[in-house]
Write a protein that binds this DNA or RNA. Structure first.
Length: 425
RNA sequence: GUGGGCGUAGCUCAGCUUGGUAGAGCACCAGAUUGUGGCUCUGGUGGUCGCGGGUUCAAAUCCCGUCGCUCACCCCA
């Protein structure tokens, strides 16, 4: 029989690593709460238009990476490739902006992009992200940066760099693009093919290119930072000043142009020093025009998205993940059918009392059951056979210290709890 | 979409150059220990060598095709 394999670029998270995910998610929830961000969960798929309009028709994501399909009613749906557009859609649809002037929302969610997988890049991957909706102030930009850094810090991570740039806004970007085009036009033939295509549609993306020729040609090109209008310049200056006050180290990177069209003013990226080719841990920025682009009232907003798989890769690399596997309190090893029945009843009793318990389900030898107890990472083995059933005196073995004592079956829960508290708390 | 590397036991891999009965470590099972795990020792289970075709007396090994995985490019998380 032919076996069925997982879809390319997807992964099973097995019990030996799901504990790492739990730790990460727990940390994210904790820090988000500490910052006043509230969780939002949006559907896994959306109307295709949401992304086409929100992210931008010409972006790589929309033009070649989306999982788009028709449902039975011929409606075009898309598995979400990123989190911001759905959050803003929900923000508008549920009139969250009418209920309070500021909404601080966060999510943890799978995302889908149909790219060729490689180290740190998958077709289904997971992001956590925060969106601060309603404030145009630099304080808001900084709030999101501090938030993501705090999550990394809480996990012990320190090997990363923050890159910062401003991509301007509607009042100065078009003017700048024209200045950039004027500079690039005579050098067009020296640029790579994709950059020649970018020249008309989105010349700023030329800075993103890694071709040596394109890098060289844009070295002396006019930079957005020098062409900001007063308001955007002030905004950027304030963001930098606040980061300085918070003693957050960052690098100005005039080449940082993020791949999504909706960014305005602040753009930032957190880059790992410990990853391979795909080294962006997270990125974000301000997107003051997105809400109206999606049909809502003009509402300023800023936020970021960060990759969970890449974060796990770095944490693994830096040896910052300790053993997060769950352990069992008690494994009941029984000898004989009567004892096995007793084990079943007792396991239930213990579980009713918040003590995790497991038992043999294969009728194995005591030795094999002890081995199983060890494999389950159990703290105690409770051994019961004919003798114990008659006397009511059971053997409780501490598997980590290899010591055992007798406990009375009359107050089993109390006795086990006492031993758990004494040795494991 | 394009290029490189790799597909042999549940896992990590050796064997391929120079064709000749398919191996190791770990894991799993059992025994040493007749009712006690982890350590040690002994034994055991487990493989149409990714799949299809070709060359050959003979193919894991050589040739062709194909599928899968992986890394990289593009771009991003």
């Amino acid at each position: 029989m032919e076996t069925i394999q997982k879809i390319k670029g997807t992964h099973d998270i097995l019990p030996d690593t799901s504990g790492d995910w739990r730790l990460l998610e727990k940390t994210i929830h904790r820090i988000m709460q500490r910052y006043g961000f509230q969780e939002i969960r949006t559907p896994i798929f959306e109307a295709t238009n949401l992304f086409a309009r929100g992210i931008g028709q010409l972006t790589d994501i929309v033009s070649k990476e989306m999982y788009t399909f028709e449902d039975r009613g011929k409606k075009s749906l898309t598995l979400k490739p990123e989190g911001t557009a759905p959050v803003i859609r929900a923000f508008i649809e549920n009139s969250l902006g009418e209920k309070r002037p500021i909404n601080k929302l966060y999510y943890i969610s799978p995302m889908f992009r149909q790219e060729n997988p490689q180290a740190g890049r998958f077709r289904q991957f997971h992001q956590f992200g925060a969106e601060l909706i309603g404030s145009p102030e630099p304080f808001a930009d900084v709030e999101t940066i501090l938030n993501v850094l705090d999550i990394y810090k809480s996990l012990g991570l320190s090997s990363f760099t923050i890159k910062l740039n401003s991509v301007g806004d509607e009042n100065c970007r078009e003017q700048y693009k024209n200045a950039l085009r004027d500079y690039l036009r005579p050098r067009l033939s020296k640029l790579c093919k994709t950059c020649q295509e970018r020249f008309e549609s989105n010349p700023m993306r030329v800075f993103d290119c890694k071709e040596a020729g394109c890098i060289a040609e844009t070295e002396a090109a006019p930079r957005m930072l020098d062409h900001l209008d007063q308001a955007s310049a002030d905004h950027f200056e304030k963001v930098c000043a606040l980061l300085d006050q918070h003693q957050v180290a960052y690098e100005l990177d005039y080449r940082l142009v993020r791949g999504l069209d909706y960014y305005t003013r602040t753009a930032y990226e957190v880059v790992s020093n410990a990853l391979g080719s795909q080294n962006a841990l997270g990125g974000g920025g301000r997107y003051d025009l997105l809400t109206q682009e999606l049909g809502g009232k003009p509402t300023p907003a800023v936020g970021y998205a960060a990759g969970i798989e890449r974060l796990l890769m770095v944490l693994r690399e830096e040896k910052l993940l300790t053993d997060n596997s769950l352990s069992l309190d008690v494994f009941i090893a029984s000898i004989g059918e009567k004892a096995q029945e007793w084990a079943s009843k007792t396991a239930r009793l213990l579980r009713d009392n918040e003590i995790s318990a497991d038992m043999d389900l294969l009728g194995r030898s005591l030795k094999a059951q002890m081995k199983e107890a060890n494999r389950s990472n159990a703290k105690f083995a409770l051994i019961v056979g004919e003798q114990e059933l008659e006397s009511g005196q059971l053997t409780l073995r501490n598997l980590q210290q290899s010591e055992q004592t007798e406990v009375n079956s009359a107050d089993l829960v109390g006795a086990i709890r006492k031993h758990l508290d004494a040795k494991f708390k």
